[in-house]
Write a protein that binds this DNA or RNA. Structure first.
Lengths: 228, 228
DNA sequence: CTTTTGTATTCTGTATGCAGCATTTTCTGT
DNA sequence: ACAGAAAATGCTGCATACAGAATACAAAAG
């Protein structure tokens, strides 16, 4: 079941303008997911003919999607030899986390200034939900909510450029973090850091929030360093 | 003279593997330049037929290039209505400068740790050249060297992710800064800041370099705020 | 047996053709 | 004369077709 056509139209016949997504756009999301979830491993060549047939799509929109992902940094374009899924070294991952850390520190500062109370409440809600998942041992949902919280804080900063850069790096790292399974004690530490984060945000304590976010990502490196 | 074919082969017959650039790749650079230099103003629709004919290229590689630029954030894709050159609000520009500031502060720190003496010397050379252009009143060359210096410092940080993010933002801002003409006194101040930067780098003074880079971009906002 | 060269196949890169959507123009009714 | 509808035009989105490059394979030479 990898046909792409099923994704083209929304399943519900709900109101509002019917979704009119372009195929290349759908393909971008689809391929991105395939890369993140490991269906396409690093170093894999993206075979236009084969991949297109597998997804039930012609080469043209597929190529367009690949170009888009290339600019995003998920695939690499080799002249006359197509595209391959980009492989990240340990240093690459460390570099990305370093930049992400800086960006989130900035996001923390800005969020404390710009966030609405409602926005902060949403983060709190996400966090509480995440803690529930943690206690239930549901790693996948925990992981997703974790990412959502970080994205939400960045959103609160109300800085489009920051959100862009953060999203790109987060996407590039998803594949890694998806794999990086941490032990119970480190997991607990991560949850504890998150609690600190939300408290600092609610107090609109810029310095504190920024510090915790930075520390959190330093520790993230510890957690994934073995996986790469 | 807008034919694209002339750019396909390298002019020199130098050694090494002959350049074999794909057309869509060439188009990305070409369109990017057209946007930055104002040949394509914000809000302009990128007409596939017309633009392709003008450049002597068929629609397929052109469309691929546009998708790439869309991911880079220079153009916006409107479903069923093609692509338009993205328009940036004053807030957008301010947001971008804020992020750029943070990134360059980080770059400064890392560069002081990781840079080779030779690398630092190159920045010094660029700076001296820039000062010459400044004294000669050659705004265009000054501007280009200015950008080169910032890029060079980021390169010295030896962090690929940082370089990526920096390049994207710098590209998005080029169009703005290209326009933003500053008065003589502000121009002098900018040059003076650059001098401080290079001195701090040569001394490998992390805190100082970081501070000057940050201040420099704060001032950059002052210089361009009227232009947007 | 190894190396090299010629050939065949496969895949990318580019062009073109066709269908559907958006927009504009024209026609018709009031 | 004006408003609304219908037709016509132009453009995008996707598929297909064709040309050229890269690789794999096989045969021949050392």
């Amino acid at each position: 079941m990898n046909e792409i056509t099923s994704l083209e139209r929304r399943p519900d016949g709900g109101p509002g303008p019917i979704r009119r997504t372009a195929l290349h756009d759908t393909l971008v999301s689809h391929l991105r997911d395939m890369i993140i979830e490991g269906d396409l491993l690093p170093g894999t060549r993206l075979h236009e003919g084969q991949l297109g047939e597998q997804l039930g799509v012609s080469r043209t929109p597929l190529r367009e999607a690949i170009k888009y992902l290339a600019s995003e940094g998920l695939v690499e374009l080799v002249p006359s030899r197509g595209a391959v899924v980009k492989r990240f070294s340990a240093k690459d991952v460390h570099d990305m986390l370093t930049v992400l850390q800086t960006l989130e520190e900035l996001a923390g500062k800005l969020a404390c200034e710009a966030a609405s109370d409602a926005g902060i409440a949403e983060v709190r809600a996400l966090h509480d939900e995440m803690v529930q998942r943690y206690k239930a041992g549901d790693r996948l949902q925990y992981y997703k909510l974790n990412q959502q919280i970080h994205s939400a804080i960045v959103q609160l900063a109300a800085n489009a450029a920051l959100a862009d850069m953060h999203a790109v790096l987060q996407t590039r790292l998803k594949r890694i973090r998806f794999i990086g399974h941490e032990g119970p004690e480190k997991w607990a530490a991560a949850v504890s850091e998150h609690e600190e984060m939300v408290v600092a945000l609610e107090a609109r304590n810029k310095a504190k929030l920024s510090e915790v976010l930075g520390r959190h990502l330093m520790n993230a490196w510890e957690r994934v360093r073995d996986a790469v």
